[in-house]
């Protein structure tokens, strides 16, 4: 019962450890640590040749709450909203202590910031629109994501798809946000309450986009609102989306759909406004070496044809001269 927050919530397991459920007896082999957060540690684990993400916590109640959220998603619709839940159980450690855990589908992908760096800015609009579609679905079922942040997002590809991976902060609309991260929290910036409503998620989403250009985040300073707007204005790559992001920061969008609509307008209007500022040299190289190749191939039939004509021409000329020679001889 006495969950001591003071103790490290990190749970260290050595590779190859078997985590076996007390209730359903399923066994998972620990492969490596994927990450750890405020209320648990996530490991990559394997069972019957398939890989899963396994989250363990000393705090049984937070596991139970997260499982409840994951179950709600599954009841409502298919797999698009977050990773699907595979198993829930308790593990009695060899030492005797009990840990709660749940197992979900393992989503393999790139961090959002890495993906944008490698594939270019034009992906921002596309990926954000995808996320807004998911958020709209989530909001329609009466929930708010809550702890929306770069760490909780992943781009799976191909095809590129932005997905969320941690549902710990998901909160019913109208309640107090369950879990948040200061930088993405509108309350922290003095820009609104911590009551769960769709605009709470849209604020956080705007912060996710801005943070792509401030990997180390920034302090809120004396006047948080001013700081925020100044930092937004300083990012040239976001000029096209500036007005939309500002609307999201000020809570002007009541629904994800409205914000998606605006982003779509911009994405359609400015196809090259954010050209290859950060495409990796490898990609470029691949492009430049492949281009001449294809041109060569295209040119090949034309050249072959000209050689034939050349041959015919020479033959005709030689024949012509030969005939003239014969005629002269005969005369």
């Amino acid at each position: 019962m006495m969950n001591q927050l003071g103790k490290s919530q990190d749970i260290e397991l050595s590779l190859g450890t078997f985590v076996t459920g007390k209730w359903y007896k399923r066994s998972y082999r620990i492969l490596r640590k994927l990450g750890s957060g405020a209320c648990g540690t996530v490991y990559l684990a394997e069972r019957q040749g398939k890989q899963y993400a396994l989250k363990l916590s000393r705090n049984g109640s937070s596991i139970t709450t997260e499982v409840n959220v994951l179950k709600t998603f599954q009841k409502v619709q298919g797999k698009t909203l977050g990773p699907s839940l595979v198993d829930v159980d308790d593990w009695i450690q060899p030492g005797g202590g009990a840990l709660s855990f749940y197992v979900m589908e393992y989503l393999k992908g790139k961090e959002l910031i890495t993906f944008i760096k490698q594939h270019g800015n034009e992906w921002i609009g596309v990926l954000v629109m995808q996320l807004l579609t998911d958020l709209e679905q989530l909001h329609d079922t009466g929930w708010v994501f809550g702890d929306l942040k770069t760490d909780n997002l992943i781009v799976t590809y191909p095809p590129a798809r932005l997905r969320w991976i941690d549902v710990g902060g998901t909160t019913q609309i109208g309640r107090a946000i369950k879990e948040y991260t200061e930088f993405y929290d509108r309350g922290y910036w003095g820009m609104g309450s911590r009551k769960a409503n769709p605009s709470y998620d849209l604020f956080a989403l705007a912060m996710v986009v801005i943070q792509l250009y401030y990997p180390h985040r920034f302090e809120k300073g004396q006047d948080p609102e001013k700081t925020l707007i100044r930092k937004l204005h300083q990012v040239k790559e976001l000029t096209a989306y500036q007005a939309i992001l500002k609307n999201a920061l000020y809570g002007k969008y009541n629904s994800s759909g409205a914000m998606r609509h605006d982003i779509q307008q911009v994405a359609l209007k400015h196809p090259t406004s954010t050209t290859n500022f950060s495409r990796s040299p490898q990609v470029k190289k691949k492009f430049s070496s492949s281009a001449p190749q294809s041109r060569q191939q295209k040119n090949a039939p034309y050249r072959r044809g000209s050689k034939v004509w050349e041959g015919i021409g020479i033959g005709v000329m030689v024949g012509l001269f030969y005939m003239i020679y014969i005629v002269i001889q005969w005369l």
Binding site: G60, S61, D89, D90
Partner: peptide, 23 residues
């Protein structure tokens, strides 16, 4: 008997009550 000794499904239902009360 307490919450930890319930199977995960029932525990989930009890937790919903706790969350509701907390709110």
């Amino acid at each position: 008997k307490n919450m930890e000794e319930l199977p995960p499904d029932q525990r989930g239902e009890v937790m919903e009550v706790v969350d509701e009360l907390g709110e």
